[in-house]
């Protein structure tokens, strides 16, 4: 499908952006960045810049979508027109509709849906800049936004991809690797419950490579998980300091 003229990873195992095979991109996580949302979070994952806002639990609109026995989670994943090299039409693409669905399904297992019947929680994810792995970064941010909104959760959901470039399994693919690599495996994970809530794959992998990729992605998730918790704490540290 693609002409591989350049090597994506050199003989010393260093990737195009200077990382080792199992190295994450730099991450920055911030909680409570939007004053009008009940909960919000901002993530910079490599060059990805993503905002997530959570509203609720609140009354569903339209009302007939509410469920008598549980809360309904709705998610919208949306990319800004300027987030990618060629302007993306702001109308939702099929990709965005699918990603909204899988992001929602990756967050649902973390929520006590049955405790809030007839209500809804809305999560809006805006990708301001995309550089590969936006669905994972979106999930990491969305989980923080929900937690920030004060919605009880079984665990935070954290996501990270692994993949295959030039026959090597690597962690956290960036844009170029995503496009030219031979497989991409996004994984969302709840570390405390050892539960995988999102798993997708495209490309070609043997079953042993898949196992390796999933394990590597889960290790990446665990690292980001620590940063997620830190980000949540930081918000309240700031509150505490201003109180004092």
């Amino acid at each position: 499908m693609n002409d591989k003229t350049d090597k994506l990873i050199d003989k010393k195992g260093i990737r195009g952006d200077g990382r080792k095979a199992d190295e994450l991109r730099s991450l920055k996580l911030q909680v409570g960045v939007l004053s009008n949302a009940d909960g919000s979070a901002y993530i910079e994952h490599g060059k990805n810049k993503i905002l997530a806002a959570a509203f609720g639990p609140r009354e569903m609109h339209p009302k007939h979508l509410s469920q008598p026995d549980r809360m309904v989670l709705r998610c919208r994943y949306h990319m800004a027109p300027f987030s990618v090299p060629e302007r993306k039409s702001p109308a939702p693409s099929r990709r965005e509709v699918e990603l909204s669905k899988v992001i929602k399904e990756s967050l649902e297992p973390a929520l006590f849906l049955e405790l809030y019947p007839r209500t809804g929680v809305d999560v809006f994810v805006e990708v301001l800049q995309a550089d590969g792995g936006t669905r994972c970064a979106s999930i990491t941010a969305a989980a923080l936004a929900i937690a920030d909104a004060g919605v009880p959760m079984r665990d935070l959901v954290v996501a990270c991809a692994a993949g295959k470039i030039d026959d090597t399994i690597v962690l956290d693919l960036y844009d170029v690797e995503d496009k030219l690599g031979s497989a991409d495996v996004p994984v969302a994970y709840m570390p405390n419950l050892n539960a995988v809530t999102l798993l997708q794959m495209d490309g070609v992998l043997s079953s042993s490579e898949l196992e390796k990729a999933v394990n590597m992605a889960m290790d990446g998730c665990k690292n980001i998980y620590a940063m997620q918790k830190e980000a949540l704490k930081t918000k309240y540290m700031v509150v505490k300091e201003t109180e004092e």
């Binding site: 649902e108 849906l113 709840m190 809530t197 997708q200 490309g203 043997s206």
Partner: peptide, 12 residues
Amino acid sequence: NICAIQKGGSGY
């Protein structure tokens, strides 16, 4: 070889 995976549904 595996060429595509998709998890669906609200469980894990």
